[in-house]
Simulated assay, not measured.
Amino acid sequence: MAVVLGPNRYGKAETRVVRVTRDGDVHRIKDVNVSVALSGAMDAVHLTGDNSAVLPTDSQKNTVFAFAKEHGIAAIEDFGLLLARHFTRSQAAVAHARVEIHEYGWERITGGHSFARTGAEVRTALVHSDGEGGAESVVSGLADLVVLNSTGSEFHGFARDAYTTLEPTRDRVLATAVTARWRHRGTDADWDDSYRGAREDLLLAFAETRSLSLQQTLYQMGRRVLEAQAGLCEVRLSLPNKHHFLVDLKPFGLDNDNEVYFAADRPYGLIEGAVLADDAPPAPSAWE
């Protein structure tokens, strides 16, 4: 039996950077978590311990900090592309760079330099680059966007077996914490405008869909984003069903007309799926 080295990559994960931009007395902050992974002609380090092609992960961390100073951090997609292109162009052994960035939101309290962390979702970006002249891809997205419809959701007509106890309902609470990622057709876009538009489309589709299942809602959310955002070609969604169960108040002599719920955190249903434009170009590494 022959043993061979398979696909591999290495890098520095979760470099946390807070960049303060000081415009006189008015400051702006960017709070990001950057993960870099490099791959290419790296066989020797695995097979013989030859490190000559290995750029230390500490150097990758330092690059993130230095670039935050030298270039600032505007849209995280741009910062990801800047880093990915740097690593593929500056290191002969690196054929492919993957940069993933999560951004944490802050809001101004008062004055020019006081902020509070928002309770909003985390903005995400995932960039792949094969270097100058090679393939590149950008996937933007968000995580932990918590949404709830207090009515307008049903679930009935489902398959049953010997272990089914769930009762059908024509009026339930539908809640989820949205993780959504969307693939851009190119690498030159107004990232902030695109993000705002996609986020709004997700929220409107969730709010306006009379839902017979969370799967149906998932499809309508992805469909609305693609129909409204011409620069996007694919949306992937992960929607945990944040179950809300009516509390039985009869032992206390009380009716419960869809008013009091127990919010269960686990176990939960997990609905995942992709929605694509029919002309979406292939992107074999975009999501990895």
Rank of each mutant, 00 (worst) to 15 (best):
S140H: 08
D171F: 04
A75Q: 10
K69I: 14
K61S: 09
V94C: 13
G152S: 05
T48M: 09
T88Q: 06
G141W: 02
R108D: 07
A135D: 14
F158E: 02
I73E: 04
L145C: 08
H96I: 11
A116M: 11
L148R: 13
L142M: 14
H71R: 13
F87G: 00
R108G: 00
H128Q: 05
E154G: 00
N149R: 15
F67C: 04
F65R: 10
D144Y: 03
H86I: 02
L148V: 15
D78F: 01
V147L: 15
G119V: 05
F158H: 08
D31M: 06
H46M: 03
G157C: 04
A68P: 09
Y163G: 05
D78Y: 04
E70I: 10
R123D: 12
A116N: 12
V32D: 03
V147D: 07
A53Q: 13
V146Q: 12
G157H: 01
G133N: 01
N33K: 14
H96A: 09
T164Y: 00
D171H: 12
F65M: 08
R85Y: 00
P168F: 08
T57P: 05
A68Y: 08
G80Y: 01
I101H: 08
E136W: 01
V146M: 07
A125H: 00
E167S: 13
V34W: 07
E154I: 02
T165G: 07
G72P: 05
F158N: 08
S140L: 15
R98V: 09
L81A: 05
I76W: 04
G105C: 02
L83S: 01
T169H: 02
G133F: 11
M42K: 08
G40M: 06
E77K: 02
V64H: 07
T57C: 11
D31C: 11
T124K: 10
E100N: 11
F87M: 02
H96T: 15
A95S: 15
R108V: 01
S39Q: 12
A68S: 15
M42T: 12
N51P: 06
A92M: 04
A162V: 02
F155E: 00
A93I: 10
G134P: 09
T63G: 04
A143D: 13
L38I: 07
R89L: 12
